[in-house]
């Protein structure tokens, strides 16, 4: 491998798409307290991430084992009309790129400025990866990226080609 990077296709996470006013979401479910207010910022609580990905739009990520518990806590089916909570665990496929060249490999497909001072540990953003919509965030030693699940094989294909 020409680049010093380890690429791992991750197992699915529990994901919930959250829309509405932060206060309304937090009022509905204590699980959602502490939603980050800054755009493109994430808040970590252990392995649970709250990612602010758009105006009045967050993504909650947690280990898959937490999915049913979260579903029960968030009660998407009975939430008031002012907020929207939708289980989307299967919609994204995550990859983890770690190693000294992780940033270089990511920059092959991603136009974001990945400099730590610009895109730091609490940054998260939907952007583009090899022409596809993708979520990017930092992790220990590198980055995690997520694309629409059905494109997972193609992104794995791309990353393999990039690191030949």
């Amino acid at each position: 491998m020409a680049y010093d990077v380890e690429i791992l296709r991750l197992s699915p996470f529990a994901l919930f798409d959250l829309k509405g006013a932060a206060e309304a979401l937090e009022d509905w479910a204590p699980e959602l307290s502490g939603l980050p207010g800054d755009p493109n910022a994430l808040a970590r609580n252990g392995e649970v991430l709250h990612c602010h990905v758009g105006p009045q739009h967050w993504l909650l990520r947690a280990p898959l084992e937490e999915e049913n518990r979260l579903d029960a806590a968030l009660r998407p089916n009975t939430a008031p009309p002012e907020i929207s909570l939708v289980r989307v665990s299967d919609t994204l496929t995550f990859f983890r790129l770690t190693g000294p060249d992780a940033g270089e490999v990511l920059s092959i497909g991603c136009p974001l400025d990945l400099l730590p001072g610009v895109f730091g540990d609490t940054a998260v953003s939907f952007t583009e990866l090899f022409g596809l919509k993708a979520l990017v965030l930092r992790c220990a030693g590198g980055f995690e990226i997520a694309v629409e699940q059905s494109y997972g094989d193609m992104i794995a294909d791309y990353l393999a080609r990039a690191t030949v």
Binding site: I108, G109, F130, G131, L132, E148, S150, Y151, G152, D153, M154, D157, Y158, R161, A162
Partner: peptide, 18 residues
């Protein structure tokens, strides 16, 4: 074109029963 050749010349999507 960069990496865009052969199998990734165009995007492709799979379903779980591919």
């Amino acid at each position: 074109g960069g990496l865009r050749e052969e199998s990734v010349t165009f995007p492709y999507r799979h379903t779980p029963i591919t």
